[in-house]
Amino acid sequence: MKHSDLLIIDDETRYADMLARRLELRGCRCEVCYNGGDGIRIIENEMFLLVVLDLQLPDIYGTEVLARIKKIRPDIPVIILTGHGSEKDRQQCMKQGAYAFIHKPLNIEKLLAILNEIREKSA
């Protein structure tokens, strides 16, 4: 099974690509997909340390994607990264087991810090 560090699910293609490249520059292996359906399929086949998930996706709403990911792999940490998320969304996501709920714009160092934290835990 292929093993990457991070899966980025975000419909804003340029944003997702850019984030992936920046993380790769910092030594992370990233995969990117642009809708919920693709994301779920990838999760089914691959292992990741961390999933970064947007809420506003063209096919399936983020909370639903989160629920399905958790169903497939309950242990995988999922960070919600959204530009629009409401308090209600935040509460729901945390209830569903999201690891963190972060508003865009993202501070990349913060994301790296979380990733390191997870690495340390799983090591």
Binding site: E12, R14, Y15, M18, L19, R21, R22, L25, R26, G83, H84, H103, K104, P105, L106, I108
Partner: peptide
């Protein structure tokens, strides 16, 4: 906030990437 946030995120990311480069 909603309308600005996404382009803002993109600017930030792009700038970050340029810096990285």
């Amino acid at each position: 906030a909603h309308e600005i946030n996404n382009p803002l995120a993109l600017i930030s990311q792009t700038a970050g990437y340029i810096k990285d480069l």
